[in-house]
């Protein structure tokens, strides 16, 4: 039974957690691609930036969380999301919008977003240094140990506060996004613009407003993902390097332009990672006498240090065999 608990902790919970992070990032990438037709490479840096804002706010008001019984950084999350959304809107105004007005090719916008990536990384390091920091300043991470009601199991299932908050946030965000896209006038206009931008203009849709709202949604989801991940692990300035490839892989696996596909893609990548670094020897150990081979101490598909290669290979496979993604999407 301990082996199963180990599996639940290391594959199911870890996969769901990292999958949620990837999903929140990938939804933003997919929305930006649908509306503005370019791959926004600086997206992972918006995630870092959001976490940075949350850290900054937590340092300013460290006592708020304990008073409410929640992590301070989580209480600060709406503000961090707002600040990141605002930053995203202004980054667009400053760097992407002038290029769009010139009618440049999408690749020029991609290059510009690479420039924005470098700029944001420089700025974040300038203010924060290169060390990793905890988003818990005056409070401590709540860790829940759930005992499994089986005799043979003496190890508990472990889940932390930030993990629970992350999953709850994702559920709420997805429902809200769905209602926005299918019920609100602006959300429908967003889908219309993704479908046919010229006709959207002809119909009198305020396309600038749609663009702004896209950045607000993408920016705030990115901030939430960055903050909740940093809350669970720690805030590192190079967070975006670890996130960039998986969130793009998730968006492409899901079929670019499909928000729900991006969501699914996030979990596909998340679980693929945890399944491939999982030490299967642990699960096989109870059966080691029946096995025809000597069970090694570590039996994982991919060593943990090489986890980043997993989304890379999934991405390659998808591009080769199903370039439109699991759901039908635009080919990048």
């Amino acid at each position: 039974m301990n082996e199963l608990v180990f599996f639940i902790n290391n594959v199911l919970i870890s996969g769901a957690v990292i999958g949620s992070i990837y999903a929140l990032g990938a939804v933003g990438i997919t929305l930006i691609f649908s509306i503005l037709r370019f791959a926004h490479f600086a997206h992972a840096d918006l995630m870092t930036l959001g976490a940075f804002f949350a850290f900054f706010l937590t340092a300013l008001f460290p006592a708020i969380g304990p008073a409410l019984g929640l992590p301070t950084a989580f209480v600060m999350l709406p503000l961090a999301m707002g600040l990141t959304a605002l930053t995203a809107v202004y980054l667009d105004k400053a760097f992407y919008k002038p290029l769009r007005a010139q009618g440049v090719k999408p690749i020029v916008l991609v290059m510009a977003s690479l420039g924005v990536t470098l700029m944001l990384q420089g700025l974040i390091r300038m203010f924060m240094g290169t060390s990793s920091r905890s988003l818990y300043i005056d409070d401590r991470k709540g860790i829940h140990r759930i005992d499994v009601p089986f005799e043979l199991a003496n190890r508990p299932i472990v889940i932390t506060d930030p993990q629970i908050l992350l999953i709850l946030f994702l559920v709420v965000a997805v429902i809200a996004l769905h209602l926005f896209l299918t019920r609100s006038k602006l959300g429908k206009a967003m889908r219309a613009m993704s479908d046919n931008p010229d006709l959207a203009r002809v119909s009198g849709i305020n396309t600038q407003k749609v663009v702004t709202v896209t950045w607000i949604i993408a920016g705030s989801l990115a901030a939430a993902a960055g903050t909740l991940l940093s809350l669970d692990v720690s805030l590192k300035p190079d967070l975006s390097f670890m996130l960039l490839l998986p969130i793009f892989a998730a968006a492409i696996v899901g079929g670019v332009g499909h928000p729900y596909g991006a969501l699914a893609g996030g979990f596909v990548i998340g679980f693929a990672e945890t399944l491939s670094v999982f030490n299967w020897a642990v699960l096989l150990r109870p059966f080691r006498d029946q096995l025809w081979f000597e069970l090694p101490a570590n039996l994982a598909f991919v060593p943990t240090e090489y986890k980043i290669t997993v989304p890379f290979f999934i991405l390659l496979a998808i591009l080769v065999w199903r370039p439109t993604g699991l759901f039908k999407g635009k080919v990048l």
């Binding site: 206009a189 889908r191 479908d195 046919n196 010229d198 006709l199 959207a200 009198g204």
Partner: peptide, 18 residues
């Protein structure tokens, strides 16, 4: 390309009234 293909008929009309 004079319709929004993934939007429903009703949503297409609603976009006309945006």
């Amino acid at each position: 390309k004079n319709i929004f293909p993934s939007l429903t008929v009703q949503e297409n009309l609603e976009m006309g009234a945006y």
